[in-house]
Computed example of a mutant assay.
Amino acid sequence: MKAVVFSGTTEGRRFSQKLAELGVAVTVCVATPLGAEEQGEMAGITVHAGRLQPDAMAALLAGADLCVDATHPYAVDATRNIRAAAVQAGVEYRRLLRAQSPLPPGCAVFETAAQAAEYLTGTEGNILLATGAKELAVFAGLEPARLYPRVLPTPEGIAACEAANVPHRNIIAMQGPFSLALNKALITQFQIRYLVTKDGGAAGGFAEKVQAAADTGAQLVVLRRPPETGETETQILAYCKEILQWSH
């Protein structure tokens, strides 16, 4: 059995490892060299690094028995392209879901980054943006000196900060997930009044951010997840085991 896993997430790495342990030939697709570095080398797993257009995805899926989309819960465009490529290639598509977190009382919740930015326009105080480099442009209308973006330590991450006119001394270029202690230290060090985050679930260190905000008195601002349907790791692995039994 051959499976292609579109990953770049903690649960994607764990799932592909469990799939390979079942004896499945797994190809893991990640968008960046950083994703490939995090995936590492494992027996039974081939890693493909680089962003793919739908046609290239479909070509990669040719001959596979299964396509598993384990991309980030907020990577809506990637999910749409992967689903289309699976249809084009005639390959079974499954979406691996990350469990959602209960949102704490008192947090400000918004559907989009633009709505969160609008809310922050009427406030004062420093803002820790733990939403990633892609959303930075949306917050660029706020006073740059207030913004403390936490981005991946890549040229793209730094470039996004520069494009938003964020002062270099405010850029926090680090790779997560982050501990409670580190989150609290950053909030204290930079006198953060607002912590903006996505609901990244357990894999994205969401609980540590919630607790850090609660412990320091920072206001938590959460970007709600796009609604989607899919299955858990256990459900998809059970499906794979069934296929393997049929094929023997």
Rank of each mutant, 00 (worst) to 15 (best):
M1H: 07
K2C: 04
V4F: 02
G8N: 07
R14G: 09
L22M: 15
V24N: 02
V24R: 01
A25Y: 06
V26L: 12
A31N: 07
P33S: 09
L34M: 11
G44H: 09
I45L: 07
I45H: 06
G50C: 09
Q53I: 05
P54N: 09
D55H: 11
L60F: 04
L61V: 04
L61M: 15
G63T: 04
L66I: 14
V68Q: 01
T71L: 14
H72G: 09
H72L: 12
P73D: 05
P73W: 04
A75H: 06
D77M: 12
I82K: 03
A86Y: 14
A89P: 00
A89C: 09
G90H: 04
R95W: 02
R95V: 07
L97Q: 12
A99F: 00
L103F: 04
A108C: 12
A108Y: 01
T112H: 08
I127T: 02
L128C: 07
K134P: 01
E135A: 15
A137V: 14
A137L: 12
A137W: 01
E143I: 05
E143S: 11
L147A: 08
L152M: 11
A160Y: 06
C161D: 10
A163M: 11
A164P: 06
N165T: 05
P167H: 08
P167E: 07
H168G: 12
A173F: 10
A173K: 02
Q175C: 02
G176I: 13
F178Y: 14
L186F: 05
L186S: 05
T188D: 13
Q191I: 03
Y194I: 01
Y194M: 05
T197G: 03
D199G: 09
F206M: 06
A207F: 00
A207D: 13
K209H: 02
K209P: 00
Q211M: 12
A213W: 01
D215F: 00
D215N: 12
V221F: 00
V222N: 00
P226A: 02
P227N: 10
T229Y: 07
E233D: 15
T234C: 02
Q235M: 14
Q235E: 15
I236Q: 09
